[in-house]
Write a protein that binds this DNA or RNA. Structure first.
Length: 649
RNA sequence: GCCGAUGUAGCUCAGCGGUAGAGCACUUCCUUGGUAAGGAAGAGGUCACGGGUUCAAGUCCCGUCAUUGGCUCCA
């Protein structure tokens, strides 16, 4: 019998018979491992664990602990759901059923049959039933003609549409139980690995994402190898729901919306405005140190400005319509971007290379007509404020400026406790060099500058080719919040387009005119979005320095209201935001209400404190933390605030 | 924008053809209490808006608006 060599990830080698499978290899290591193998990575490609190996191979066994193992299982789960659906709804047609980040979906055309999420339990039950049969997923290569015949007989036009684009000889079917699907695989060995099943929701989805095509019913689901993991997943979803910024924003009285004001136009309530103001002042202080010059520009501008910038041609149709003057019929647009205004500021006077870089910063409110279905709390709105700045510099200064902006972003992330983040570097699509404006030399220079700056700062980066804007490469910061969700926040973008369009120039050392490079940057991104993410990240328990109400003084009875008021004045004079709960309520009640408002510190104030001057302190979420005098308490708060904000160097 | 769901008191929700409900919040009174809900009374609603069906409509039907889960989009 012929032998082949298997190299495992730890470098060890094994000799097995030709035609052995990854599962066989797993068995030769341990039975326990074999029971957990979902798929295998064979020379870098994910395969069925049951597919025969025919040549020397480097092999990684994939289990539930590997992302590829999970997605294989979810892909197989999509097939299992399709099998259950076919059994329960004969005659349905199937679109595509891929794994996604959390689970899988399948797009289904139910034809005349009615379907709703009320049917989920029935389907889940059927899926479990089929899973217990431990049906194997069997791979079979078919010719294009046979594939077409199969789905013609089945009458599934979607699969036929898919086959149309496939090359003869590359087509495979997978069969488990009574269900056969067009599929490139891979799959788990059998359905028995699927132990816990939950269908999540349904949604309309166009065939091939084209809104002119038929709309199918997309069913989302997720499966696990253990019931316990499903429960944990559902708990995490519950936790996310509790942290939802829309819910907390209402409870903590941060912001609201009004139908009469309009969709996607947030109204900041006093506490939310105070929070936002504190964040803005924090960034302004850092930007001052970093050499930014604050500027202020109006909310509207002549349409011509955006024709010049090119924004009108690209987005004009999907923007708020222009505002017109009463008589002359001049057209003005609500500003969708601050950059054209800043370009005009740059142009207002001549510049020498000695002036560069020039950094104009503005908390600029912009308005964009987002599709109504896209609006979502504070994360997707129609009017929002960018912590915008535009840096005008020479091509040689790009890297240094990038490094400085990264420093600023890192300072913010550190202060607000976003510890887990990655930087996405978006570069040109090497296949389509003509898509981009600006010289190849400048692009090379800028792309290298970004990569070098990111490397110098030790950022964890992901490089995406083809994700650059047509006007320049960019660096986006993706943060992971406290419960593991990813959000895109800050962005730094190089721009060759606007300096060109606005004919910006500076005089170089050679006494010639040169075109500056522009860098757009927004460390928060937008105040709205950032605050939404911050709320969800800290579950509404903001760091002390950001809290609108830092300390609640709770008098034991009305007799001590006066003393409590006096104490609050002392604290307020030391820049501590304190309030007195002077309601006619018992202390237990006041503590409870204060806890729910997430106020970080409480001072219980009664006879004992009034006499001794020693304050009884409670910390939110922790309870009684002992007593101290007023001076010590003030220091405690001030030290905590100072340690949270730190210094931007 | 498209498909589905939802819209009842400040908030969370029940009611689903026959006189608008609960809990919390709010107001007043009683109580003046020591570490997560003291007691009583009261006030509060054109049941999102506009049409229709019906003797009778939060309740059934249609439209609009908004919210929401997705899809498409995102300077």
């Amino acid at each position: 019998m012929e032998k082949i060599n298997i190299t495992l990830p730890d470098g060890t080698q094994r000799e097995v018979e030709k035609g052995a499978t990854a599962l066989d290899v797993a068995k030769s290591i341990s039975e326990g491992l074999a029971r957990n193998v979902l798929a295998a990575k064979v020379n870098g490609e994910v395969w069925d664990a049951t597919r025969p190996l025919t040549e020397d191979t480097t092999l990684t066994l994939l289990t539930w602990n590997d992302d590829e193992g999970k997605s294989t299982m979810w892909h197989s789960s999509a097939h299992l759901m399709a099998e259950a659906l076919e059994a329960l709804y004969p005659g349905i047609k199937l679109g595509i059923g891929p794994p996604i980040e959390n689970g899988f979906y399948y797009d289904v055309d139910f034809g005349e049959q009615s379907f709703s999420s009320d049917d989920f339990p029935k389907i889940e039950k059927k899926m479990l039933e089929l899973a217990r049969e431990k049906n194997e997923y069997i791979r079979k290569a078919v010719s294009k003609a046979d594939a077409v015949t199969y789905f013609e007989e089945k009458g599934d036009e979607y699969k036929l549409d898919l086959i149309k684009d496939l090359e003869d000889g590359s087509i495979t079917f997978y069969t488990q139980g009574n269900f056969t699907d067009l599929c490139r695989g891979p799959h788990i060995p059998n359905t028995g690995f699927i132990k816990a099943i939950k269908l999540m929701n349904t949604a309309g989805a166009y065939w091939r994402g084209d809104e002119n095509s038929k709309q199918l019913t997309r069913i989302y689901g997720i499966t696990f190898p253990k019931q316990k993991e499903l429960s944990e997943y559902l708990e995490r979803l519950e936790e996310a729901k509790k942290r939802d910024h829309r819910k907390l924003g209402k409870e903590l009285e941060l912001f609201t919306f009004s139908e009469r004001v309009g969709q996607g136009l947030p109204l900041w309530l006093p506490k939310g405005a105070a929070l936002r103001d504190r964040l803005e002042r924090f960034l302004k202080a850092a930007q001052k140190k970093a050499g930014y010059d604050p500027v202020i520009t109006p909310h509207i501008a002549q349409k011509e400005l955006y024709e010049c910038s090119g924004h009108y041609a690209k987005y004009g149709e999907d923007s708020f319509r222009p505002i017109t003057t009463p008589h002359e019929g001049e057209e003005f647009m609500l500003k969708p971007m601050n950059c054209p205004h800043h370009c005009e500021i740059f142009k207002s006077s001549p510049h020498s290379y000695k002036d560069l870089p020039i950094r104009y910063a503005e908390f600029g409110t912009v308005y964009r007509y987002e599709q109504s279905g896209e609006l979502h709390g504070l994360t997707r709105v129609r009017g929002f404020t960018q912590d915008d700045a535009h840096i005008f510099c020479t091509p040689d200064q790009v890297k240094e400026e990038f490094v400085k902006v990264i420093d600023l972003v890192l300072y913010i992330f550190k202060t607000l406790d976003f510890q887990d983040f990655t930087a996405q570097v978006s570069l040109r699509d090497p296949e389509n060099p003509d898509k981009y404006i600006g010289s190849t030399e400048n692009w090379d220079k800028a792309e290298n500058a970004i990569k070098e700056a990111a490397a110098e700062k030790g950022l964890k980066t992901v490089v995406e080719y083809g994700e650059a804007a047509f006007y320049g490469p960019k660096l986006d910061f993706m943060v992971r919040d406290a419960i593991g969700r990813q959000w895109q926040l800050g962005t730094i973008q190089v721009d060759y387009n606007l300096p060109e369009r606005f004919e910006l120039e500076y005089t170089g050392a050679d006494n010639q005119k040169h075109r500056p490079v522009m860098i757009h940057r927004a460390p928060f991104g937008s105040m709205e979005r950032f605050i939404a993410v911050l709320i969800e990240h800290c579950a509404g328990k903001f760091p002390l320095w950001l809290m609108a109400e830092q300390v609640a003084i709770l008098p034991i009875s009305e007799k001590y209201n006066e003393g409590a008021e006096a104490l609050s004045k002392v604290l307020n004079n030391s820049d501590i935001r304190a309030l007195v709960d002077n309601r006619n309520e018992k202390i237990g009640r006041k503590i409870r209400d204060t806890e729910l408002k997430k106020i970080p510190y409480m001072i219980i104030y009664g006879e004992k404190e009034h006499e001794s001057g020693e304050l009884s302190i409670r910390k939110q979420g922790e309870g009684d933390v002992g007593s101290m005098d007023t001076k010590a308490f003030i220091e405690l708060i001030q030290n905590e605030v100072n340690s949270q904000i730190g210094e931007f160097e």
